[in-house]
Amino acid sequence: MQTLIVYPAAAVAEIAGCFAFWAWLRLDKSPLWVLPGLASLALFAWLLTFAEASMAGRAYAAYGGVYIVASLVWLWAVEGAVPDRWDLVGAAACLAGAGIILFGPRGA
């Protein structure tokens, strides 16, 4: 259950950190945007350590689906572009895959 809280929080931290660099390098914002961006990326990495997965690679793989959905929410909420049906279908497929990776039965 903790992972269901950690993944969305990590996604917001990662997207915000990456967007800070995007804003600096692509939107001609001040280089000072990098400072909160770095802090946000460090928070992202720290948050992922709380994922309830036995292996880091599995935690990261499952997180990928949540990241994709969060990126489309960011696209809509921050950048003002509404995701189209293909964005939504692709995100649903990725989220289903993340669920399989995270919650699938494992042998001993």
Score class of each variant (00 low, 15 high):
residue 1 M to Y: 00
residue 2 Q to L: 15
residue 4 L to K: 00
residue 5 I to M: 08
residue 6 V to Q: 09
residue 6 V to T: 11
residue 6 V to L: 10
residue 7 Y to W: 11
residue 8 P to E: 06
residue 8 P to H: 05
residue 8 P to G: 03
residue 9 A to V: 11
residue 9 A to K: 03
residue 10 A to S: 04
residue 11 A to S: 13
residue 12 V to W: 08
residue 12 V to R: 00
residue 13 A to G: 08
residue 13 A to W: 09
residue 14 E to G: 09
residue 15 I to S: 07
residue 15 I to D: 09
residue 16 A to Y: 12
residue 16 A to P: 03
residue 16 A to S: 14
residue 16 A to H: 03
residue 17 G to K: 02
residue 17 G to P: 06
residue 17 G to M: 06
residue 17 G to A: 08
residue 18 C to K: 01
residue 19 F to E: 10
residue 20 A to Y: 02
residue 20 A to I: 01
residue 20 A to G: 03
residue 21 F to C: 00
residue 22 W to A: 07
residue 24 W to P: 05
residue 25 L to M: 13
residue 26 R to C: 05
residue 28 D to Q: 14
residue 28 D to R: 15
residue 28 D to Y: 12
residue 29 K to G: 05
residue 29 K to C: 13
residue 29 K to A: 14
residue 30 S to R: 06
residue 31 P to R: 02
residue 31 P to N: 03
residue 31 P to W: 09
residue 32 L to K: 00
residue 32 L to C: 00
residue 33 W to S: 07
residue 33 W to R: 03
residue 34 V to I: 09
residue 36 P to E: 03
residue 37 G to A: 07
residue 37 G to V: 02
residue 38 L to C: 12
residue 39 A to Q: 00
residue 41 L to F: 10
residue 42 A to H: 02
residue 42 A to E: 03
residue 42 A to K: 01
residue 43 L to A: 12
residue 46 W to E: 04
residue 47 L to P: 06
residue 48 L to I: 10
residue 48 L to R: 06
residue 48 L to D: 10
residue 49 T to N: 10
residue 51 A to D: 10
residue 51 A to Y: 04
residue 52 E to T: 01
residue 53 A to E: 15
residue 53 A to T: 04
residue 53 A to F: 09
residue 54 S to A: 15
residue 54 S to I: 01
residue 55 M to S: 02
residue 55 M to Q: 11
residue 56 A to M: 14
residue 56 A to T: 12
residue 57 G to L: 09
residue 58 R to M: 08
residue 58 R to C: 00
residue 60 Y to I: 13
residue 62 A to Y: 03
residue 62 A to T: 01
residue 63 Y to P: 13
residue 64 G to K: 00
residue 65 G to M: 06
residue 65 G to K: 07
residue 66 V to H: 01
residue 66 V to E: 00
residue 66 V to G: 00
residue 67 Y to S: 15
residue 68 I to H: 12
residue 69 V to D: 05
residue 72 L to K: 10
residue 72 L to Y: 14
residue 73 V to R: 06
residue 73 V to S: 10
residue 73 V to I: 14
residue 73 V to T: 10
residue 75 L to N: 01
residue 76 W to P: 04
residue 76 W to D: 08
residue 78 V to P: 09
residue 79 E to C: 07
residue 79 E to S: 03
residue 79 E to A: 07
residue 79 E to P: 00
residue 81 A to T: 11
residue 81 A to W: 12
residue 82 V to E: 14
residue 83 P to I: 02
residue 83 P to G: 04
residue 83 P to T: 01
residue 84 D to E: 13
residue 84 D to H: 11
residue 85 R to K: 06
residue 86 W to Y: 14
residue 86 W to R: 09
residue 88 L to V: 14
residue 88 L to P: 08
residue 89 V to Y: 12
residue 89 V to E: 08
residue 89 V to P: 08
residue 89 V to L: 14
residue 90 G to E: 04
residue 90 G to A: 03
residue 91 A to Q: 08
residue 91 A to Y: 11
residue 92 A to R: 10
residue 92 A to N: 08
residue 93 A to Y: 12
residue 94 C to P: 06
residue 95 L to R: 09
residue 96 A to C: 15
residue 98 A to G: 13
residue 98 A to I: 05
residue 98 A to K: 07
residue 99 G to S: 05
residue 99 G to Y: 05
residue 100 I to P: 02
residue 101 I to C: 12
residue 101 I to E: 10
residue 102 L to T: 11
residue 103 F to D: 00
residue 104 G to L: 05
residue 104 G to E: 02
residue 105 P to W: 12
residue 106 R to W: 13
residue 106 R to Y: 14
residue 107 G to D: 15
residue 107 G to M: 14
residue 107 G to H: 15
residue 108 A to K: 13
residue 108 A to P: 13
